[in-house]
Simulated scan of single mutants.
Amino acid sequence: MPTLLRWKGYRFFFYSADGWEPAHIHVAKDRNEAKIWLENVTLAVNIGFSAKELNEIIKKTRDEREPFLKVWHDHFAN
């Protein structure tokens, strides 16, 4: 479960078993978790985050999209 970023208490990561799906990241904080597609930076799943938190998460994901995609593709290339 590679962690790509820790920011403001959020952990951005993906599961090593997720390679069969399109590129995405999971974001967790406390007991909340979201899944964000990286191709178009859209929300796939939200469990517990408020709209304000999701807006912040999506903005940060947009800012980090290219490095996230690089790590994803490097990880699953093997």
Rank of each mutant, 00 (worst) to 15 (best):
E33V: 08
K52R: 11
A23P: 08
N78E: 14
L69D: 00
E66M: 10
M1K: 10
A44G: 14
S16R: 06
G19M: 11
V27R: 01
F12A: 08
V41T: 10
G19F: 11
I36S: 05
D18F: 04
E64G: 09
H75T: 12
I58P: 00
W20N: 13
V71M: 10
N55S: 12
I47G: 11
N40S: 08
V41Q: 05
K8H: 15
N40I: 03
K35P: 02
F68V: 04
R11A: 10
R65T: 07
K8P: 07
H24M: 03
A44P: 02
F76M: 04
E33G: 00
K59D: 15
F13E: 11
E39V: 02
H24C: 00
M1T: 12
S50E: 13
Y15E: 09
V71E: 12
H24N: 03
F12Y: 15
N55A: 11
P2V: 11
F13R: 06
H73T: 09
L5A: 07
D18A: 09
A17K: 13
L4G: 02
H26Q: 09
E56T: 06
W72D: 00
W20A: 15
V45Y: 12
I57S: 01
F13C: 10
K8Y: 11
W72E: 00
E39T: 09
T61D: 07
E33K: 06
I36A: 02
P22V: 04
V71D: 04
R11E: 14
F12R: 03
N32E: 15
V41G: 05
L5V: 10
E53G: 08
S50V: 13
G9F: 05
N78R: 10
D30Y: 05
R11S: 13
M1L: 11
E21R: 14
Y15L: 11
E39I: 02
T42E: 15
W20G: 13
P67A: 06
R11C: 10
N55K: 11
E66V: 08
W72V: 03
I57Q: 02
L5Q: 10
F76Q: 00
L38D: 01
R31T: 14
D18V: 02
N40F: 06
I25Q: 02
P67K: 07
D74M: 10
K70I: 10
D30V: 08
K59P: 00
L54Q: 01
I57P: 01
R62E: 15
